[in-house]
Amino acid sequence: MNAVTRADFFQPSIWKRLGYALLVVYVIYAAATLGLSWERIERGVGYGAKFLAGFFPPSFTKSDLIPGLLESLQIAFLASLFGTLIAIPLSVLAARNLMPAFVTWPMRVIIILCRTFHPVIVAIIAVKAVGFGAMAGVIALTVASVGFVGKLLAEAIEEISKKQIEAIRATGASFMNTIIFGVVPQVMNRFIGFVAYETDSNLRHSTIVGVVGAGGIGGTLFAAFQRYDYDFVAGISIAIIALVMLGEAIQSYVKRVFR
């Protein structure tokens, strides 16, 4: 019989230990250079309380609340629709189990580029390009949707069962027919989930792109901040929360219907 000890199976790794040590050092370094300290937090709590006190009672009476909200809603809806329509062909072409590498690579690069920058940064560029207003917001969130839906849908397509595809191909089906009968049924459920999530996320983002002038309730919010109009800020914030919760409710309903 061979005698074995713990060390035969669980060898200590110097690299792992070094990694942990480096992590600790980095956390201390980062906190120190950024000037994080308790005193500032303590002082900040006081300012924050004063600021929050200005929120009450919230005001909903200003006339630009409803148009701003509706514009955000429209931006979110259109961006989700356009983004999804662009993402569908893009993700089919980006799926490595359907397409050769020289097709999937350029498509993957496009999708990655769409995901690289936060929607607000894209919105700043779009405002420069097409001017202030909702169109810039739609463009910014469309880009974000192409990136999100495109990436997840391409991954979903890559995970489908090859056997079902093989059977459809064996019937003499064309490439498009194979997509329609072999691929679509396998990814439809997840696709609905992605689009619902993306619409929900666009709804949230559509309330912020206005800060940089890309339309929607965000512009109203930012203006109210600058006027120290805090009760209106509170009113807008509550309206945004209501809008996002509505989006959440619709999303869970849609998912349930398509299960």
């Binding site: 069962s161 059977a167 459809i168 064996a170 019937t171 027919n177 194979t178 009968f181 049924p185 396998q186």
Partner: peptide
């Protein structure tokens, strides 16, 4: 290929389609 039918070990039906759609997929060519 349309003229050559194939039956598979693991059936290879498209699971999320109905039985009718699976049979009709034989006409996809």
């Amino acid at each position: 290929r349309r003229r050559i039918g194939m039956v598979f070990q693991e059936y290879n039906l498209v699971e999320r389609l109905t039985v009718m759609e699976n049979v009709l997929s034989g006409r996809l060519g």
